[in-house]
């Protein structure tokens, strides 16, 4: 079992090497935005557990076992950040940050379950789970994050089963919505199909929209 830092190191070596660059201590430290001194003991520990080969002065390489571990961590990160941004509607960056924390505590089984859940109900980011695969959603955020007067387009509604009324009122994918009024508590009045509709904050936060169609 690795510490969070060791897992982070393995993950960043994977990312650095995917970019075709040599994974030096300097590179790893800057990738994780920590001091070089803090990661050296962890690197040595990984070497002792036969996950990495190399030394402080030069480049670090994975052992086959090390590579597998690194890929596992990277996958956890990707699945979690995809879930957070796609299903829960967090901003892509925030989702990635959260995923960095969660990935160290989550079990393999949970990730498997989450992954198959995303495969069956996901939207376009069901394969690969790379961070970039969710990019099309980074432009989409909850209705409440847009200012009064903005005209936006619906991308999706969370829990569509609970919000049939919204769908009946014409809040469907691609539909333009104008935010007529937004109070400080995020209650909004929107114009859909020429009708003004008042929404509670909790309903408004379930509607995801983007600027451009």
């Amino acid at each position: 079992m690795q510490t969070s830092l060791e897992e982070d190191i393995l993950e960043s070596i994977l990312v650095i090497r995917q970019g075709g660059v040599a994974a030096t201590v300097e590179k790893i430290a800057s990738h994780l935005s920590v001091a070089e001194d803090t990661i050296i003991p962890a690197l040595e520990k990984c070497k002792g557990r036969a996950l990495l080969t190399g030394d402080v002065a030069s480049e670090w390489h994975f052992t086959p076992e090390g590579k597998r571990t690194a890929e596992k961590v990277a996958r956890k990160h990707a699945v979690l950040s995809c879930f957070l941004s796609e299903k829960l509607g967090l901003e892509a960056e925030a989702a990635s940050r959260e995923a960095c924390i969660l990935e160290h505590g989550v079990s393999e089984e949970t990730i498997e379950a989450l992954d198959s859940y995303l495969q069956t109900t996901g939207r376009g980011c069901s394969r690969g789970h790379g961070r970039r695969n969710c990019d099309h959603l980074s432009a989409s955020s909850p209705l409440v994050t847009f200012p009064e007067g903005a005209t936006v387009f619906v991308t999706f509604i969370r829990c569509p089963g609970r919000h049939r009324r919204l769908i009946d009122l014409g809040i469907i994918e691609g539909e333009p919505i104008t935010i007529r009024r937004k109070l400080h508590n995020d209650a909004v009045v929107i114009t859909v199909k020429g009708c003004d509709i008042a929404l509670s904050p909790e309903v408004a936060s379930e509607i995801h929209v983007r600027r451009q169609e």
């Binding site: 609970r162 009324r165 509709i197 509670s200 309903v203």
Partner: peptide
């Protein structure tokens, strides 16, 4: 509890 969806 459901949110308010009210046509003005």
């Amino acid at each position: 509890q459901f949110g308010m969806i009210l046509e003005m």
